[in-house]
Amino acid sequence: MTQHLFAAALLDPNRAAPSDIRTWNGSDPVRRFAVYRNNVIASLIEALADTFPVCRQLVGDDFFRAMALEFVRASPPSSPRMSDYGEEFPSFIERFTPAASVAYLADVARLERLRVDAYHAADNEPLDVTAAADCLADTAQLPLLRARLHPSAGLLRSRFAAVSIWAAHQGRGTMKSLKIDQPQQALVIRPSLDVEVVPLDLASWTFATALNRHETLGAALESTRQTHADFDVAQSLGLLLRAGLIIALQPGMEPS
């Protein structure tokens, strides 16, 4: 059983290289073993750097790589599907004390993670407008309908201006004039080929989150109005429809 020792030493630099490895010229095998250590660690850090490019820019390359290294050692991937890797990176960042001075970093990471998830999520046809319009024939039933949401949709709520911070790194605006502690919300969605980040006001976010919990339209509207008395459902539903969030309206039953 050599792979157990080999595997353990890959992630832990304090462990000795496996004693069974050999080199033809008798050179120190640790140096050659380091190639594997490097491949594993560097490729996993690179995967995180690809998924979280704005986080990397925010803290700089050296800091990001060192932080990613800690994460890789604590939470190496379990599946060969590397597009999934780093689901827990945002919460790791939140607990990572050296990054505490950049309090919004974890939320920017959440936004970037949602973007990758949306990129690879299942495709879906947009809402059939004619079929949806048929629901208007019986308005009394409308509050009992539930919305089916696009499989790529993800909702973000941040205590910080995470959406503007992210946008400032896409060539939209600058970091300099941002009010960092302005709470922001967003819908991340890929209606077709491109991932879109749609800023939402808190009431629209609350409404969309209720729909995402499979509440009926009526229950979602009422629960949103409890916290946002002046909620403009027409404006909000219009925004969510244009963003492609709702792909079907269905009667009553809880979706399985």
Binding site: R56, L58, V59, G60, F63, P98, A161, S177, L178, K179
Partner: peptide
């Protein structure tokens, strides 16, 4: 210490932004 674009941000209490 973080040394990227985060250093460009105004202080969270800044009235601008």
């Amino acid at each position: 210490v973080p040394a990227g674009t985060c250093t460009e941000t105004a202080s969270p209490t800044s009235p601008t932004g």
